[in-house]
């Protein structure tokens, strides 16, 4: 099967996730090409095969209307059976535009492949769907981290410069950096994180208290930060921090993949949750099936009394 891989370039930087595209495509054979809106005189993907390259200085890092047209031209030339994106802010934005343009099916957030069938999560990873590829070309996006390459990428691509004429109406005017002030969780050896299960902001102190008793810091999952119960600089997950403490205690956190991506490298993970089917169980070394509002204060007391 011929694959076309769509690499990403953001804030003048080639994104490393192109290696995951390669790892996935290898399962379908060696015939692959890559597409990138990047910088020809900067870092390029290490990869053996044709690289269709458009210049970000001309085409913009985010200009989906134009990127779609560039891709449509490449698809015409390359005739791939499958076009592969990362399921990222770039990929999930661009992939459906191409799919509609090609009248192709799109399979989003693939986590596994077996015998050519693709598995995607449903219902916060509590269920999964296994989809067959019936028509070609097909567009797929890959869940971040699901297909690690396992070795350093190598090769020198054969560059084919591409360009297109299109003036879109929407315009990227700049970037805003993530807030990174105050506490730095990435240095903490113990992190106790609060999830939606804390129920109300008044319960944040019981999480902070356990963190203090364990000599660490408290963090939070996205919903807690979105509700403004905890500051953004304590958010763990894809759009927050990636942490790897010696001990991570997830309190009332269901374990959405975006959260897991930020903490699964922790050395030891304790989950406290009333729902024993919560996906946080996938990464927990110990799973206490309990209401954190009852268990955490008791645990804190026992640690303090030690």
């Amino acid at each position: 099967m011929k694959t076309l891989l769509v690499a990403e370039y953001r804030q003048d930087t080639l994104q490393e996730n192109y290696t995951e595209l390669i790892a996935f495509a290898k399962r379908f054979g060696p015939e692959m090409a890559m597409f990138l809106v990047g910088n020809g005189s900067g870092e390029l993907p290490r990869f053996q095969g044709p690289l269709y390259l458009a210049e970000a200085s001309e085409c913009g890092e985010y200009n989906p209307g134009l990127h779609k047209r560039l891709l449509q031209d490449v698809v015409k030339k390359q005739q791939p059976d499958m076009i592969v994106f990362c399921h990222s802010s770039y990929g999930w934005d661009l992939a459906p535009r191409l799919a509609v343009g090609l009248k192709a099916a799109q399979i989003s957030e693939v986590v596994a492949e077996q015998d050519g069938k693709l598995t995607v999560p449903a219902c916060n990873s509590k269920l999964s769907r296994t989809v067959e590829i019936t028509d070609k070309p097909v567009v797929v996006t890959l869940q971040a981290g699901a297909f690690p390459l396992g070795s350093d990428p190598d090769g020198t691509p054969e560059i084919i410069a591409v360009s297109a004429e299109y003036t879109g109406n929407s315009r990227l005017t700049g970037y805003e950096a993530a807030e990174r002030t105050g506490v730095d969780l990435t240095r903490s050896e113990v992190i106790v994180s609060a999830g939606r299960g804390i129920g109300k902001p008044e319960n944040v102190p019981i999480i902070a208290e356990l963190a203090r008793a364990l000599g660490g810091e408290y963090g939070a999952s996205r919903p807690v930060v979105d509700s403004e119960w905890v500051e953004h600089n304590r958010q763990v997950g894809t759009t927050g921090l990636t942490v790897s403490p010696k001990l991570y205690v997830a309190c009332g956190i269901s374990g959405a993949v975006q959260h897991l991506a930020g903490m699964k490298k922790s050395e030891f993970v304790v989950a406290i949750n009333t729902d024993r089917d919560a996906p946080i169980g996938e990464v927990a070394d110990v799973f206490a099936v309990a209401d954190l509002k009852q268990l955490v204060p008791v645990l804190t007391e026992k640690i303090q009394a030690r």
């Binding site: 799109q106 269920l127 999964s128 169980g281 799973f287």
Partner: peptide
């Protein structure tokens, strides 16, 4: 454009220890 596909319950990967019972014991 795409068939629905078969729905399944994923096999649990985590081999963690589950603690049930009274809060005090846990």
């Amino acid at each position: 454009l795409q068939q629905p596909g078969a729905m399944s319950v994923p096999v649990k990967q985590g081999g963690g220890l589950y603690l049930d019972g009274q809060v005090e014991d846990i």
